[in-house]
Design a binder for these strands. Structure first.
Length: 500
RNA sequence: GCCCCGUUCGUCUAGUGGUUAGGACGCCAGAUUUUCAAUUUGGUAACAGGGGUUCAAUUCCCCUACGGGGUGCCA
């Protein structure tokens, strides 16, 4: 059994979007599951739209997701000469031909076809009395038929220096069947396929040719890519045949749609993975979520990377497009956050700060002791956060400077009564020893009982004074984490304002 | 227009020629509770429609509808 070789082949015309990331993930999973390799190829043959920034963004995105690839990254443009060589080989074999029809002529033909189409549609609409419809239909069928070169078989010889394009001499009869690993057998009738361009008039290869030659030369055994390439699989198979090569296995994954079911657009989710990073999602959570989008292993929802690679197979793939559900991603991410050890999570949060909006301000405050403080506060913080962004937000109070600025709701809690309680509590806390959550809680409960209050009556003002907000981890944990001096000082800050 | 692909709760999905059609997210209600979460108990909710095949179809076949992709000297 030949070793599996998959590849991820993005075109660097933008960031690595979420659909691309999923395609990369499945290629990676399949390679890992079978003990094979995943290769990376940058399809940069479109010189106008390809940019170095996009290449960097794609590689950066893959690295963030921890999807590694084997061997050197292949740049398609650099292999143009090899692609042309293959085209000439086909020419020699009689599997391709020179076509002298210009792009302008083709354009004219297309607009003719468009006109014929509209004429037919108009006639149908008007329900024009009989007869003409059949003729119009025939006319349209003729004009919209797949392109066939008029010069193909002994047409008028062109000028010796006339520019030409190399086209595949596609078969007229029969059909090509690809046995897709996901979609099952798919049949393409040859009469519906055209003589596709292999080499442009400037001698550069088209995508269709380049992909086939590269996949062959790179030894790719499994092409795993988006559903949008399904028809290309048929066309590419024709090229493999023309070259006398065996086509690899194909697996076409259903696409990801936006939450509204329409195609993923910039507006809702066709964001680069960088955007998900900026929202504070963890790579393992992303992988888990993306894997479950279109693939399932029974009822399993939370899967480690090890489990995914152990279980992955095309049998578990769905065939219909999946919608992106941010709520589920967040839920999953929350799970991963809660299950990350405290110090590890603190480290990850600090590392992620430069990528989070406004994270730099917090990053500036994090020094060595601050990192320790963050780790100690983690148990209370992490179960309240679905993303690193929320985690950073929740950690804000740890590093806030006295006197704290309270938000409106917190400020409203500090009634004169509440401030009096704060003053009394500060006095009780000051000599407390040891300073830990249990001791502070016991002391607080004694005070509450003596005063005949409910715990909430002092817990909420305490929270406001300590964190500046109405929600936070448990107050006693907050007190403990902050340390006696800082906690008492914060409480006195707010108590003092009463008399001021 | 033509070609190709698809359709199970709102969403992601499991599943089978005979099931109370299962799980997860979301939502609703209860428990817990110093806030918010977390946790936990329960609830809501689906086989697109129509024809076949069959003793029996959500499951197999056909048609329709809807959605998606392709139809480039883009990738």
């Amino acid at each position: 059994m030949k070793t599996v070789v998959t590849r991820f082949a993005p075109s660097p015309t933008g960031y690595l979007h979420i659909g691309g990331a999923r395609t990369a993930l499945f290629n990676w999973l399949y390679a890992r599951a079978t003990g094979g390799k995943m290769l990376l190829r940058i399809e940069d043959t479109d010189r106008v739209r390809s940019t170095d920034a996009a290449i960097a963004a794609i590689i950066d995105g893959l690295k963030w997701l921890e999807l590694d690839w084997d061997g050197e990254t292949v740049f398609q443009f650099a292999r143009a000469a090899r692609h042309a060589e293959a085209a000439y080989e086909m020419l020699e074999r009689g599997a391709a031909f020179r076509c002298y029809v210009t792009a302008e002529e083709l354009e004219a033909r297309r607009s003719q076809a468009e006109a014929a189409k509209q004429a037919l549609a108009a006639a149908r609409e008007a329900k024009a009395p009989g007869a003409d419809i059949a003729r119009l239909e025939a006319d349209m069928r003729e004009k919209t038929a797949p392109f066939r070169s008029p010069y193909r078989d002994g047409g008028k010889p062109p000028a010796p220096d006339a520019p030409f394009v190399v086209r595949l001499k596609a078969p007229r009869d029969g059909a090509t069947v690809i046995d897709d690993k996901v979609q099952g057998p798919v049949t393409f009738q040859h009469k519906d396929m055209d003589d596709m361009v292999l080499l442009r008039s400037d001698g550069t290869p088209t995508y269709m040719l380049a992909v086939v030659v590269d996949d062959h030369d790179m030894g790719v055994t499994h092409i795993i890519r988006g559903d949008d390439h399904l028809t290309n699989a048929g066309r590419q198979t024709l090229i493999y045949d023309a070259l006398g090569w065996t086509a690899p296995a194909f697996a076409h994954l259903p696409l990801i749609h936006g939450p509204d079911g329409a195609k993923l657009s910039k507006r809702h989710g066709a964001l680069g993975v960088e955007a998900y990073r900026a929202m504070g999602f963890l790579p393992p959570a992303m992988r888990n979520y993306l894997a479950r989008l279109g693939w399932a292993h029974g009822d399993d929802e939370i899967m480690s990377t090890e489990q995914m690679t152990a279980w992955f197979g095309f049998e578990g793939m769905g065939r219909s497009p999946a919608r992106l559900d941010l709520a589920k991603l967040e839920n999953l991410n929350g799970h991963y956050i809660r299950n990350t050890p405290d110090d590890e999570l603190a480290r990850q949060l600090i590392a992620a700060l430069p990528h989070l909006p406004g994270g730099d301000a917090l990053a500036a405050k994090i020094d060595e002791p601050a990192a320790t403080l963050l780790a100690r506060a983690m148990p209370g913080l992490k179960e309240r956060a679905k993303t690193l962004m929320e985690l950073a937000d929740g950690a804000h109070f740890l590093f806030a400077k006295r006197p704290l600025a309270l938000d409106d709701k917190a400020a409203a809690l500090l009634t004169p009564d509440a401030r009096a309680h704060l003053a009394a509590l500060a006095d009780r806390y000051a000599p407390l020893n040891p300073w830990d959550a249990a001791t502070v809680e016991a002391e607080t409960r004694r005070y509450v009982e003596a005063a005949g209050l409910k715990l909430g009556a002092v817990a909420q003002p305490l929270r406001a004074a300590l964190t500046g907000r109405t929600t936070s981890p448990g107050v006693f944990d907050v007190l403990a984490v902050l340390g006696r001096d800082e906690a008492v000082a914060r409480i006195r800050d707010q108590a003092a304002l009463a008399s001021a």
